[in-house]
Design a protein around this nucleic acid. Sequence first.
DNA 1: GCGACAG
DNA 2: ATCTTGTCGC
Length: 229
Amino acid sequence: MAYFRKNVEKVPPELVEKYKEEQRKLARKVVMEPIDFDHIELVAGADSAFIGENYILSVIVVLEFATMREVEVEYSLSEVDFPYIPGLLAFREAPNVLKTYEKLQNKPDLIMVDGHGISHFRRLGIASHIGVLLDVPTMGVAKKLLAGRYEEPCSRRGCRSPIIHNGEVVGYALRTRDNVQPVFVSPGHRTDLEGVVKAALMTTRGFRLPEPIRIADRYSKDLKRQVRP
DNA sequence: GCGACAG
DNA sequence: ATCTTGTCGC
């Protein structure tokens, strides 16, 4: 049953291997560099919702980094072909997110993606995947751990504990609010460990999720009730 | 071989 | 992600 749940049977084994190899290839292109906070004007949040079994609705919201004021919101509705398989999420959602990115009139200096960055089995979560393809700074913000392990961080906002995978620190379990479940942040592309932690804390406004992600999530759910496939 | 597994 | 009611805590 667990086997069925993971949808792996919906994709030919050789195709799965092909995609994994594609990830290893893209993973080599991931660049780790400090975030230049002095030049971050706009931050974006990307999230997707699903309508039925065959349609995906992706949203990208662009905010002014200093004030978290909304600058632009774009979305795209597409038919989905690929099933959800842990580790291969990007092949299901990234295409529609990239399509939405192209519509942006205001290109962000940093994109926060709902999911993981390098805290992934092959160091290529959807945030890294999108970052490499666009060659733009990205970071992952996930609500659940995917790969690696971590110690429970202290209960106050700002507390963090490293996510260790294959002996390497690939991200942090970060507490964005007192006594609330931590979020898992990791570099996507052209960002760094310290930078993603700082960015997540700087864009949080009293809720567990940083504003870019939280607002994108809200839009995806609202638009879902208005948009018709 | 067994268990784990973002959205 | 999605399907869903009441319930706990600030």
